[in-house]
Nucleic acid binder design. Structure first.
Lengths: 235, 235
DNA sequence: GTGGAATTATTCGTATACAGTTTTTCAGAT
DNA sequence: ATCTGAAAAACTGTATACGAATAATTCCAC
């Protein structure tokens, strides 16, 4: 019971608005929306060949879930505030070690096999220096083990800041030096899962969050310097 | 900044649907809705003198926020599953110690004064053996310190299972033996806040959650026994 | 050319209407 | 009295329409 109600694998949605919601969320999660795209209900409705109401419902729901930000003129991707990102790292340190520990005790052999496959895909993507592909693989890896966290409330709490995690990851992925760290970290996490080692899994994910924060801070610093330089040139 | 966007103090809502949402959430949080009440959009719309749409928006939003459960015939309070309640205790143990620690460092003198006042109210309610009043006071106490948690994401995560906390508390409040424990616990928490003692506040809230779980388990056991007895009598 | 006011175009929120579905009710047969 | 089936009622989801608010644009004075 209660497996079909969570949102990450967009299971068969019943209503039109539900389908639009899932489709748009998929686009958001795959990063198919530019930072400047404005989603307007009439346009979405026209694209899906329905009236405004289902489109509007879907957009408002995505906004309330935190995936979009309502503006006076359409819905946009939420602008990532530096402070908020740091807060989410804090939240992740509280939740994810326990989640990973629970997953370690709960992953089925099939799910472990799937994790192994997607890790191979990540390795291949890294070898090919295909950032987009690597990003997708990491997303799938993360979604996969989170899906097997048995505590539903905890799982939902994790999924709520999923988009922020991905956006931050996309920033840090720009620096290729981070790629081996990320893939190696996932491998260690996978190995801990295989050993059913809840402690190691929790420790590993905690280190992961710290490393992610460090990478983010570095990327943030670089961007800040660039901005300062260019504005100095302009002024 | 960022003080007017959260939901716990229902600041002036802009749209009709927002107002209805806040009003209904207030009723839910104050426990004014019976477990068998079915909220139907047409009825809500008629009550507020508007069309179905704003009422429907408000109800669906409440449902997505977890405060209501959509059924084939109207919206109802979510049925609390035993397993789910235990999971939320688990989640609370992860989040609330850190939240209380942050609150201890962040509460203003005015907010501390407000906590003191509401604690006096709780004492009075306990002396008068007024369960309803005590429940309200505890709710205000909790909402007050949570409101001063600076980490917005963490605060939202806490507020998300607010109704579950209250429902469980309402169960455990039936046993008057729990009342002194609860009020004393809040007093200790308040004192830790006053001393700006983040560690003590975190420890205290952690013990609180454990005590709450124990009280819930006991109440649950008693109800189970009663049910077993009555069904044995019936069968 | 530029600043500002008036106009136009979008977009949002709500109202009303209609079709499909599910539950309930009620009549009739056993 | 109870079961069965059809009709009625209730509820949901979606479509269309309209007024209000706000951003974008044009136009005019300087």
């Amino acid at each position: 019971m209660s497996a079909g109600k969570t949102s990450s694998p967009p299971s068969v949605a019943q209503s039109t608005s539900g389908q639009i919601h899932d489709l748009l969320m998929g686009r958001i999660q795959r990063g198919e929306l530019g930072q400047d795209v404005r989603l307007v209900d009439t346009a979405v409705a026209a694209e899906f060949g329905v009236s405004r109401m289902p489109a509007r419902d879907a957009l408002m729901r995505l906004a309330h879930e935190g995936y979009l930000e309502p503006t006076t003129r359409g819905f946009m991707l939420p602008r990532l505030d530096h402070q908020e990102i740091l807060e989410i790292f804090d939240l992740r340190r509280l939740l994810e070690p326990r989640a990973a520990a629970m997953a370690a005790l709960n992953l089925s052999d099939e799910e472990l096999k799937a994790l192994d496959d997607i890790q191979a895909e990540a390795h291949a993507a890294m070898a090919a220096e295909d950032i987009e592909r690597l990003h997708r693989a990491c997303e799938i890896f993360r979604n996969s083990w989170i899906a097997s966290v048995p505590n539903v409330s905890l799982r939902k709490a994790l999924q709520r800041y999923m988009t922020q995690v991905q956006a931050v990851r996309l920033m840090t992925f720009a620096d290729q030096a981070n790629h081996p760290l990320i893939v190696a970290g996932n491998t260690q996490l996978y190995q801990a899962f295989c050993r059913r080692d809840a402690v190691a899994a929790g420790d590993r994910i905690l280190r992961f969050v710290f490393e992610g924060e460090a990478a983010y801070l570095q990327a943030h610093e670089e961007i800040r310097n660039q901005t300062a330089t260019s504005s100095a040139q302009a002024g």
